[in-house]
Structures are given as structure tokens and as C-alpha cells.
Design a protein around this nucleic acid. Sequence first.
DNA 1: TATTGTTATACTCTATAACTATA
DNA 2: TATAGTTATAGAGTATAACAATA
Lengths: 168, 168
Amino acid sequence: MATIGGGPPFTGSVSYLLSSLGYLSASGFAASLATVDLEPRHFALLQHISGAEGRSQQELGDLLHIPASRMVAIVDELEGRGLLERRVNPRDRRAHALHLTPKGRRALTKSLTLAGQHEERICRALTGAQRDQLLRLLNGVAADLGLRPGVHPGLTQTHRDCPTPPPA
Amino acid sequence: MATIGGGPPFTGSVSYLLSSLGYLSASGFAASLATVDLEPRHFALLQHISGAEGRSQQELGDLLHIPASRMVAIVDELEGRGLLERRVNPRDRRAHALHLTPKGRRALTKSLTLAGQHEERICRALTGAQRDQLLRLLNGVAADLGLRPGVHPGLTQTHRDCPTPPPA
DNA sequence: TATTGTTATACTCTATAACTATA
DNA sequence: TATAGTTATAGAGTATAACAATA
């Protein structure tokens, strides 16, 4: 398994390929989102608000594992551009209820279109059957590793250790 | 493809799964490497020096897409710990020839063992046949996307846009 | 004059923790 | 007293570009 010196089988490691392709996929999608002046974190928040409107910053931050102090800037940015609004919660006037605006919904729709195009680029080399097969295998690994659907682990904490160099 | 509001099929996107699993794989391996006080960048450099000793910082930086000013700190760290040495190049006394020390070779061997263990963790849910199948599919996508074997794209530039939120 | 390596500066991003207003 | 949100401060990491030595 550990072949020092000789040509290392970079193509023989699932973990290394996942790390490299994952980075490529993430950065490629971020570049695509940048064409509509959004970052992945903004997209993630818009999508989760869309899933259930009216939740507080704290609730969404807990769900996405984004600390409260970071949430402020993200919500500020999106509210400043008119994509969402903070409404007063009559039950608890400390907590803001987050809602998408019509403009925010349009931005989300556009982003989802970009995500679809990105998915097609990533899967361009695969037949339909191969893509299904790949999906099954990846979902199996994801379930085994305890990945929570819809919560990207990279949003959770600071991404300081993202890249993985080639294992044996 | 774009399912707003309803439960989004997080498990139906190859690009999103790659991004999430890639982050998990990268951060998990980084955590494993941390047990021997190394970062992925250090491991990558040790391994590439091992592949061909005596190259200059510039050559290795160009290969790994690491700017010269960042190379200095990485080489400083590894040299300070006695894992590699800068030797004077008789042909060009500006360029340092980088060589592993015996201690550096041992650290590399240990790191490769950790990489093997990490690979097993990631693939734990897969049968041997499934793992081979997954390798073939991932290599197909990697080749299509122009991924260069042995050069992790995350080392290339600053990893600021690593996480990808869930596409449709 | 160009190039290798180094250093210095400025900038971005983040977490931590203090702070306010409500409860 | 505790909690939601905000703000301020300090720290880590980076790129850019100036710099020194050699070619």
C-alpha cells in the first residue's frame, strides 16, 4: 500500500480522489455562484430559509453549524441586497424571523439552475447508468460516515485543513 | 431538477456529495496527520521530494502550485524539525537542492501508513468490488475534469471557497 | 538584466468575548 | 438570571511586492 519512491498510485486511493474532486466541485460551484454575486454560504442560507420560513438566526445557525457572530454578516449581506428580511417576532422580540423576499426567491431559483448546470459539468464523462451507480456508492459512504443530508461539513467550521495531499 | 420548498434531494447530486465527502476526507486525513505534527502541505512536499530529490524550492512550488513566499515557511518548518535539508547547488548557488533526511523518510513512511488507515476508514462501507467500481468512476470523472495525478487542487490556491452548499 | 529565495506590509477572515435589549 | 443578536478586538493566514544574492 505504501509505495515510497516509485510512482505512487494517486489513482488508486478513494480518499484522495474524493478530496481532490470534492475541492474541484466546491470551487467550481463557488465560481459559478459568483456570477450572480453569491457565495456558497449565502446560497445555503437562502435554501434553508426557503425550506421553512420564519426561523431565527440562532435556529438556522445551529442547523448549519454557523456561529452566531458569523450569521450576522451573512444575514446583513443578504438583507442589504433585498434577498431576505428580518421580521420582528411578536412572541419574542429578541429573535428575528427570517423570510425570503420575492427577489430572494428569484435568486434562489437562479442559483438552483446554476447548481444543475454544475452537476452536469461534473458528470459529463458519465453515462446515466454510471451516474446512478456513482450516486449509490457515494451515498453508501456518506451514510457510513454519518454525513447529515443538507448540512455541508465545510460550513461547520473554519476550512483551514481542506486539501488532502496524495496518499500512497 | 430544481425543487424549491419541498424536501431537496441532497442525496441525488454527485457534485454535492463529492464536495461534502471530499471535505470530510480532507479534514479527516488532516486530523490523522496532526497526530504526527504534520499538515497536509508538509506531507505533500515530503512525498514530492521523495519522488525526486535535489529539486529547488521553485521547481517544487511550480509543480504543487505553491507560491515561492509560502514555500519558504513550509521548508523552514520541515528543515527546523530535521525532516529535510537545503543543500547548496554547485551549479547555481541561488537555488537550494531539497533532500530528505533519514528522519524525514521515517516521517513519510509513518504518514503513508496513516494515509492507508484513513483510506480504510473512508471505504469501510464498501466491498472490494464496490471500491474498485468507485475508483473507476472517480478516475473517469477526474480525467474528464483535467485533474493532474498527484497535484491536489486545494494546495494550489487559498482555500477560501471550499464548502459547497446543497444543490437541488 | 533576470532569477532564487527571503522578508515586510497590508489585507481578509475568523473566533472570542464583551455588550444591548429583551425575556 | 438567561438568551438573541450585535459589535469589538485580537489572531492566524495569505498575497503582493520590495529586497538581497547570484547568475
